[in-house]
């Protein structure tokens, strides 16, 4: 399985330095900063991805905005909330654009609807568990996308390796206790949904 290490708690100083260097035109710093935060970006995009929109397209847009905007960040310590807002806005904009141009976009993302997957992208190669476990994970992810946005995002962010409550709270600009509460509630809602959909089959998210 690929590794998405986003250990924000212990990378604070490194990220701040990278933000400053990337903003000054250092290409290596730019790439390293993206590497460290692409997990955060990807999870935020997944959490806010509108139906009928490819996650790849939104992440590409976020990367482009990241390149254009990183030089304008005044407080390097506020990079995570900034890149999260950029990702949320990009996902919402993509949803609006998709609704406006329904014909072409619907055609290009036909695989998404047919596959019934979250982003239409391949998920087989990276999953190290059994096919049944992978299927169960995909089913839970589909259900998680039905949760209210405020609960869905922290739950999916928590699934990114290394993202602690504290790091999620920093990125979402919320108190840590609120993040924790939302994750608890999200799991409760997800469990209820899973039981409803599975009938008598007991699943405990």
């Amino acid at each position: 399985m690929g590794v998405w290490r986003v250990v924000l708690d212990c990378q604070g100083d490194e990220v701040r330095s990278l933000v400053v260097a990337a903003g000054g035109g250092d290409g290596e710093a730019l790439r390293e900063l993206w590497r460290l935060r692409r997990g955060l970006v990807g999870a935020v995009v997944l959490a806010h991805l509108p139906r009928g929109v490819e996650a790849e397209d939104v992440v590409q847009e976020v990367a482009a905005l990241f390149v254009r905007g990183v030089g304008s960040i005044r407080d390097p310590g506020a990079f995570d909330p900034w890149i999260r807002r950029v990702a949320v806005n990009a996902a919402r904009d993509a949803g609006r654009a998709a609704r406006r141009s329904s014909g072409l976009v619907a055609g290009l993302t036909a695989g998404l609807a047919l596959n019934g997957s979250v982003s239409g992208s391949s998920v087989g190669g990276a999953w190290a568990g059994s096919a049944a476990e992978a299927e169960e994970g995909r089913r839970l992810l589909e259900l998680a996308r039905e949760l209210p946005e405020d609960y869905r995002e922290p739950l999916l962010l928590r699934c990114v390796r290394g993202l602690s409550y504290r790091a999620i709270a920093h990125a979402m600009e919320l108190p840590e206790t609120t993040v924790e509460t939302r994750i608890v509630r999200a799991r409760r809602m997800l469990r209820t949904l899973a039981i409803e959909r599975a009938g008598t089959q007991e699943v405990r998210p």
């Binding site: 399985m1 999916l156 699934c159 390796r161």
Partner: peptide, 26 residues
Amino acid sequence: AHGFLAGAVAAELDALASIGPAGGVA
């Protein structure tokens, strides 16, 4: 269940891993 969900999220993120800036442009 958390492991299943985290695995599914990781798979989605892996599919996005190749996207990013390649040059120093900022």
